[in-house]
């Protein structure tokens, strides 16, 4: 399979303190596949993903090559980069509640984004957005678009972001812990929507999570990060069944202990 994204020697550091946050990371994303990045908080998962879209705050600087479809993102002008953001590289954030401007109805962000990337008429954009929202089980899309973020639930907002991604049809979707802020039932639904999304638009995906259960369900390959370094990577099943690194073994075993405990309480597996 061809690589759609190749990250080579990515380094991210704080310009004030000089502290290195990401040290020499290299990894590839195959076209149409899903790469999960796992690791505990502060291991550099989010910073890595934001670095791919050059979205880190101005106090962080980055070097290395980020080759997307033959172009080095690190060398693009801001204008060229802006055209790629959303249209080619689409990000879905952890907390839907804070991802939309709290003073505007959610429709505003959707319309502004679509108007930025397509020459559609207002009506056409509206129709496409509505059908995408319906496909992620958001009934009454018109009503939802006229609601403020605080009037909707986290799961709904998460699905609105997914619906926007469906309309944008990006090459890569970067999902930054999209299930962490949700309750278990919404998590289940959102993960399903992510799986559908990949099947539907055939995009590649980078999925950050510390929920190994979700990762096992959705990812083809896994990258394990610790203290800003990639310590292990490979096929999902391989990581789960035969991790080489101590830290990965520890992550997998704690996860197993947790789910075994859960199964025992629920009376399964006897």
């Amino acid at each position: 399979m061809k690589n759609i994204l190749e990250v080579k020697n990515l380094m991210v550091w704080d310009i004030v303190s000089g502290k290195k946050i990401i040290q020499n990371s290299s990894f590839d994303l195959k076209a149409g596949s899903c790469l999960a990045i796992v690791g505990e908080s502060g291991s550099g998962k989010s910073v890595t993903c934001r670095a791919i879209m050059r979205l880190n705050s101005t106090s962080l600087q980055q070097s290395g090559d980020i080759i997307f479809k033959g172009e080095n993102i690190n060398q693009l002008s801001t204008k060229e980069l802006r055209k790629k953001r959303g249209k080619n590289l689409c990000m879905i954030l952890q907390n839907g509640m804070t991802a939309f401007d709290p003073s505007c109805v959610v429709g505003v962000h959707l319309r502004e984004t679509l108007a930025e990337h397509f020459d559609w008429s207002k009506n056409e954009a509206e129709v496409r957005m509505k059908s995408a929202m319906e496909s992620v089980m958001l009934i009454n899309p018109t009503e939802i678009m006229n609601k403020y973020p605080h009037q909707l639930s986290g799961g709904m907002l998460q699905r609105i972001m997914i619906a926007l991604a469906i309309v944008l049809e990006p090459d890569i979707i970067i999902a930054d812990e999209p299930t962490t802020a949700l309750d278990t039932i919404s998590q289940f639904e959102v993960v399903d929507q992510f799986i559908n999304l990949r099947e539907r638009i055939g995009c590649s995906m980078i999925f950050i999570s510390h929920d190994l259960g979700v990762v096992r369900k959705i990812a083809d390959e896994v990258l394990v990060m610790k203290d800003g370094k990639i310590i292990e990577s490979g096929n999902t099943e391989k990581i789960f069944s035969g991790a080489k690194h101590e830290y990965t073994k520890y992550l997998v075993s704690t996860r197993m202990a947790l789910s075994n405990n859960f199964k025992r309480i629920m009376g399964e597996g006897q």
Binding site: N95, A99, P102, E112, T113
Partner: peptide
Amino acid sequence: LNEDYVLYGRASGLPEKKITMHILRN
């Protein structure tokens, strides 16, 4: 500036001018 909606606006490819208007409004 550090709010998520600014990050999401940028990640969606909105121009800085529009993002500034959202920030100003809030």
